[in-house]
Design a protein around this nucleic acid. Structure first.
Length: 384
DNA sequence: CAAACCGGGATCTGCCATTTAA
DNA sequence: TTAAATGGCAGATCCCGGTTTG
């Protein structure tokens, strides 16, 4: 889950020192580490195919960042036969702008090796999940690799069938393909592995319906299928070990909000756990409190150490107690900024957390504002 | 009626390493 | 051997409002 708005695409351009020797780029004789034998015969074979000059020109005319393309998939630029024009026409036909197309090819050059028939077929498959071409275009713009990395349409078809067979509905599929499009270019075997892994976990924990379990976990966390089983397993094992969970506790956790944190990098999860434990201990919490906290609000482990500590300190400084936080950990959902603003406003009107609890911090802005207005007017009438 | 509970929605690529195919 | 295909990884929350409860 979650990541920041991805505007890091077109950055990062490094010179790449291949500026001028485009033509007949012979990169023989690089190694000082003397090749043992076959020096001559190897050297004679080394002149690799040069880059295809007319292709380069086409790409430039399309507005493609050739340097970027070269850096990413150099081999594509050496191909004799490519389909950049067909691709461009095809995507234009789907409503993609020239700018978008250029971006796509710059970031995933191999796109130009797909035939129009192939593209049409693949598009049709994607349209099984999306209602409009525009939606697909926006995803290609975001993540060209997801669409183009695999050339295996049969596999894509099988994936859709497989995911549907899990009981995921159209809405799930739609959300999955738009938020984690890579899932669909995974090999079905890989996806199956993950599903089987989840089923096994369920069975091991004494669950009675492994299929249902896998489906629940996946639809709760659509990123699961683009993670490795190794990572998910590590997270599950860690959770169990560090919280001393029984089988049934763990099973319940995973089927509930625990699923949300399964896709985290396992080192990160561990780090966050350590930091959280340290912080809570320093605040006088017992292991039992920690366990309850995580079980009732697993997303607490999603928050990085710094953010979390700042947030906690902020709440404590605002006159809220640890036990109140433990009872209502959802207040940690909100940004530190937001929490600070609210605490200030509440302080101004002399809001009593001991008397009223801290639920007021866990509401939408709209409701919070309404509440504040009401408090203000009540105060006014009382003073009259 | 307000307060509390609870679930859902946005969002997630771009790179590198390894294996497989030609 | 190169290029294609595929797997894996790091990165690191916040907010809203419908429904139930008291």
């Amino acid at each position: 889950m979650a990541s920041l708005p991805g505007i890091r695409a077109f950055l990062r351009t490094r010179p790449s020192l291949s500026g001028q020797r485009a033509l007949g780029s012979v990169r023989v004789l690089l190694t000082a580490t003397g090749p043992p034998r076959g020096f001559c015969s190897d050297a004679s074979k080394l002149p690799v195919n040069p880059e295809n000059q007319s292709l380069l020109q086409n790409l430039s005319r399309m507005g493609v960042d050739v340097n970027m393309a070269r850096r990413r998939q150099p081999g594509v630029l050496r191909r004799e036969c490519t389909n950049e024009k067909g691709l461009s026409r095809f995507l234009q036909g789907k409503g993609a702008s020239l700018r978008v197309i250029a971006g796509i090819v710059s970031r995933y050059p191999r796109a130009i090796t797909r035939s129009v028939e192939h593209l049409e077929q693949r598009w049709k498959l994607w349209r099984n999940v999306f209602q409009t071409d525009a939606q697909i275009v926006s995803i290609l713009d975001r993540s060209p690799e997801s669409f183009f990395r695999s050339s295996d349409n049969g596999n894509l078809e099988k994936n859709i069938a497989f995911l549907t067979s899990l009981g995921l509905n159209g809405k799930d599929l739609h959300r999955m393909l738009s938020t984690a499009p890579r899932t669909f270019s995974n090999s079905v075997e890989l996806n199956k592995q993950m599903v089987e892994f989840l089923e096994d976990v369920c069975a091991e924990l004494g669950g009675s319906n492994p299929e249902q379990f896998a489906k629940t976990v996946i639809s709760r966390n659509l990123y699961i299928l683009i993670r490795s089983t190794r990572r998910v397993r590590a997270n599950i094992d860690n959770l169990r070990a560090s919280l001393h969970l029984s089988d049934s506790e763990l099973l319940a956790l995973l089927q509930g909000h625990g699923a949300d944190i399964l896709d985290l990098s396992s080192e990160y999860l561990k780090k966050n756990f350590r930091s959280l434990r340290q912080k809570m201990t320093s605040l006088g919490c017992k292991e039992e409190d920690l366990k309850k906290l995580i079980i009732s609000y697993p997303m607490v482990l999603y928050i990085g150490p710094e953010t979390l500590n700042t947030k906690l300190d902020c709440l404590l400084k605002g006159g809220i107690t640890v036990s109140q936080i433990l009872k209502k950990p959802k207040v940690l959902d909100y940004s530190t900024q937001n929490i600070m603003e609210r605490l200030q406003e509440l302080q101004r009107v002399g809001y009593d957390f001991h008397k009223n609890g801290i639920n007021i911090l866990d509401t939408s802005r709209k409701r919070f504002v309404a509440k504040m207005e009401k408090l203000a007017s009540e105060e006014g009438t009382q003073q009259l």
